[in-house]
Amino acid sequence: MSLTRGDDADTLLPDAVADHWLWRHAPARLRPFVQLARLDRPVGWWLLLLPCWEGSALASASLREAPNLWHLTLFFIGAVVMRGAGSTYNDYVDREIDAKVERTRGRPLASGRVSPRAAIWFIVAQCLIGLWVLLSVNGLTIALGFASPLIVLLYPFAKRFTSWPQAILGTAFAYGALLGWTSRTGALEAPALLLYLAAILWTIGYDTIYALQDLRDDAIAGVRSTARLFGENVQLAVGGLYTGSVISAALAVHLAGGGVFAWLGVVAYAAHLAWQTSRTREDVAPPTALRLFRSNRDAGLLLFAGFFLQSLARLM
Rank of each mutant, 00 (worst) to 15 (best):
G186L: 15
I123A: 00
Y269R: 11
L303R: 03
L48F: 10
L36W: 09
H20E: 04
A289K: 14
M1G: 14
S148Q: 09
P287Q: 11
F146T: 15
R291A: 15
Y242I: 09
L58C: 04
V43K: 01
W21D: 01
R291W: 07
Q310M: 02
V124M: 05
G106K: 09
P108G: 04
S2Y: 04
T171N: 05
A192F: 13
I247A: 15
P27W: 00
P32M: 05
F230D: 10
H25F: 12
S136G: 08
S278H: 14
F307R: 00
L72N: 05
Y269C: 06
G222H: 02
L251R: 09
F261Y: 12
G258D: 07
I209H: 04
V234C: 13
S295R: 01
S87M: 12
T203K: 08
A174T: 05
H71D: 15
L241A: 02
A147C: 11
L303T: 01
D19M: 04
L292F: 10
A198H: 08
F161V: 03
K159T: 10
S87G: 05
Q235L: 11
R216Y: 11
A99H: 09
T162R: 06
D298Q: 15
L69H: 15
A250F: 10
L255E: 15
G145W: 07
